[in-house]
Amino acid sequence: IINNLKLIREKKKISQSELAALLEVSRQTINGIEKNKYNPSLQLALKIAYYLNTPLEDIFQW
């Protein structure tokens, strides 16, 4: 999986903590996703895309 979450999140000036709060997950979860240590569920990936107002395929590429 190619993961552009960190790049997109930083472009939008959103911290890991802010995104985690919006998604109701821990900051460690966001960190793990960004470091490719954790693959989000489809539901979480869709929520990330929604809150970042970015197409899912721009954030994650399988």
Results as ranks from 00 to 15, higher is better:
1 I>A: 09
1 I>G: 09
1 I>Q: 09
2 I>L: 14
2 I>Q: 13
2 I>M: 12
2 I>D: 07
3 N>R: 03
3 N>F: 03
3 N>Y: 02
3 N>D: 01
4 N>R: 12
4 N>G: 04
4 N>S: 06
5 L>C: 04
6 K>V: 07
6 K>C: 06
6 K>Q: 11
7 L>D: 11
8 I>N: 04
9 R>Y: 03
9 R>Q: 03
9 R>H: 00
9 R>E: 02
10 E>G: 06
11 K>R: 14
11 K>Y: 10
11 K>G: 13
11 K>L: 12
12 K>F: 05
12 K>S: 09
12 K>Q: 14
13 K>T: 07
14 I>C: 05
14 I>Y: 08
15 S>H: 05
15 S>P: 05
17 S>K: 13
17 S>Y: 10
17 S>F: 13
18 E>T: 12
19 L>E: 00
19 L>S: 00
19 L>N: 00
21 A>G: 10
22 L>K: 12
24 E>S: 13
24 E>I: 06
24 E>R: 14
25 V>D: 01
25 V>R: 03
25 V>H: 02
26 S>E: 07
26 S>C: 05
26 S>K: 09
26 S>R: 08
26 S>A: 06
26 S>V: 03
27 R>M: 13
27 R>Q: 15
28 Q>W: 12
28 Q>C: 12
29 T>M: 14
29 T>Y: 15
30 I>C: 02
31 N>M: 14
31 N>C: 09
32 G>Q: 15
33 I>V: 06
34 E>C: 03
36 N>A: 09
36 N>D: 08
36 N>H: 11
38 Y>S: 09
39 N>A: 15
39 N>V: 15
39 N>M: 15
39 N>P: 14
40 P>C: 09
40 P>G: 04
40 P>N: 01
40 P>H: 03
40 P>A: 06
40 P>R: 01
42 L>D: 05
42 L>I: 11
42 L>W: 11
42 L>E: 06
42 L>C: 14
42 L>S: 05
43 Q>N: 11
44 L>K: 02
44 L>H: 03
45 A>Q: 10
45 A>G: 06
46 L>K: 11
47 K>V: 03
48 I>P: 00
48 I>L: 08
49 A>T: 03
49 A>G: 05
49 A>S: 10
49 A>R: 02
50 Y>G: 06
50 Y>T: 07
50 Y>Q: 08
50 Y>C: 11
51 Y>H: 11
51 Y>W: 08
51 Y>G: 04
51 Y>D: 00
52 L>N: 00
52 L>K: 00
54 T>E: 08
54 T>A: 08
55 P>W: 05
55 P>A: 07
55 P>T: 07
55 P>M: 06
55 P>F: 05
56 L>A: 05
57 E>R: 10
58 D>A: 09
58 D>C: 12
58 D>V: 12
58 D>E: 14
59 I>F: 04
59 I>P: 01
59 I>M: 05
61 Q>D: 11
62 W>A: 08
